[in-house]
Structure formats: structure tokens, C-alpha cells
Computed example of a mutant assay.
Amino acid sequence: MAASTAARTDLPRGAVGVEACCSPVTGGVLDVDAAEYLARGFKALGDPTRVRLLSLIAAADGGEACICDLTGPVGLSQPTVSHHMKQLVDAGLVTRDQRGKWAYYAVVAAALRSLGAALDAAG
């Protein structure tokens, strides 16, 4: 992904994640950075179209999908899908790689694991 315009995929200090602290949100007080990181991720997943787009990318061959392959399955125009994808990129849930005219997206698995771990009340 040399020409990548990928979003930040590292977790802020104090965020719940694979390499970060493993306590869920119910395990103690989150610092401001961790709370903001988690809120961005959950807000991005608060839209059913974005959840569907994320699942389409995760299920795609090679673990990445072109924007041109995402518009049909969700029944939306390319500009609308691009808007949704920008929200997912900004939340750090997917990366974007520009290849000529087309943008390709891949899921950031660590970001999804961190959101899941944040809700894991069993710890």
C-alpha cells in the first residue's frame, strides 16, 4: 500500500485493544483519548449501511474491496458510498489505498478487536 492514505491504525494510550490495556469499559475509568477513540468507532458503526460495507470488505477476496464493487450491493450512489467509507476511514476501522482512479479498502482487524474488547464485560 505504497500510495495509501490510510487512517491512523494505532490505538491511543489507554485505549482498549490488542496491545493496550485489556479491561473493558466496565473495568475502570477510561482516559479522554481512549473514550474519544472508542466513541468514533462506535459512532461509525451506528449506521447500518456502514456495518454492511464493513462486512462486504471483510468478506471480499484478499480482504479488500474496490469502491466500484461496493455501490451495487448497498444500492447507493458512488458519492454516498464514498461518504460512508470516509466515516469508516476516519474512525480507523478501514484503510484506503488509492490505485489510479479507484480506491480500495481493507478492514483494520485490530480496531474491530479493540471495540469488541471494550464491550466485553467478562474481561
Score class of each variant (00 low, 15 high):
1 M>H: 07
2 A>I: 13
2 A>V: 11
2 A>T: 14
3 A>D: 14
3 A>W: 06
5 T>H: 12
5 T>N: 13
7 A>C: 09
7 A>Y: 02
9 T>H: 12
10 D>A: 13
10 D>C: 08
13 R>Y: 13
13 R>S: 14
13 R>A: 12
14 G>A: 13
16 V>C: 09
17 G>Y: 04
17 G>K: 06
17 G>C: 06
21 C>P: 10
21 C>S: 15
23 S>P: 03
23 S>M: 05
23 S>C: 14
23 S>F: 10
24 P>L: 00
24 P>E: 01
25 V>R: 15
25 V>C: 08
25 V>N: 04
25 V>Q: 11
25 V>G: 06
26 T>M: 12
26 T>V: 11
27 G>V: 06
27 G>E: 10
28 G>H: 11
32 V>E: 12
33 D>I: 00
34 A>F: 02
34 A>W: 02
34 A>C: 11
34 A>R: 10
35 A>E: 11
36 E>N: 09
36 E>G: 05
38 L>D: 02
38 L>R: 12
39 A>Q: 13
42 F>I: 13
46 G>F: 07
47 D>S: 10
50 R>S: 02
51 V>Y: 04
52 R>L: 13
55 S>P: 00
58 A>Y: 09
63 G>L: 05
63 G>Q: 00
64 E>A: 04
64 E>M: 04
64 E>Y: 04
65 A>I: 00
65 A>D: 00
65 A>E: 00
65 A>V: 00
68 C>K: 05
69 D>F: 00
69 D>R: 08
70 L>E: 01
72 G>F: 00
74 V>K: 03
74 V>S: 05
77 S>F: 02
78 Q>F: 09
79 P>V: 14
79 P>H: 06
80 T>Q: 15
80 T>E: 15
81 V>F: 01
82 S>V: 03
83 H>A: 15
85 M>A: 02
85 M>T: 08
85 M>G: 00
85 M>D: 06
85 M>E: 05
87 Q>P: 00
88 L>C: 04
88 L>M: 02
89 V>P: 02
90 D>H: 11
92 G>S: 05
94 V>T: 13
97 D>A: 10
98 Q>D: 14
98 Q>V: 15
99 R>M: 07
100 G>E: 07
101 K>D: 10
101 K>Q: 12
101 K>G: 07
102 W>F: 09
103 A>F: 07
103 A>G: 12
103 A>K: 11
104 Y>Q: 01
105 Y>V: 04
106 A>T: 11
107 V>E: 03
107 V>I: 09
108 V>Q: 12
109 A>Q: 14
110 A>V: 08
111 A>E: 01
112 L>V: 10
114 S>P: 00
115 L>D: 05
116 G>P: 00
117 A>Q: 10
118 A>H: 03
119 L>T: 09
120 D>H: 08
121 A>S: 11
121 A>K: 11
122 A>L: 06
122 A>S: 14
123 G>T: 07
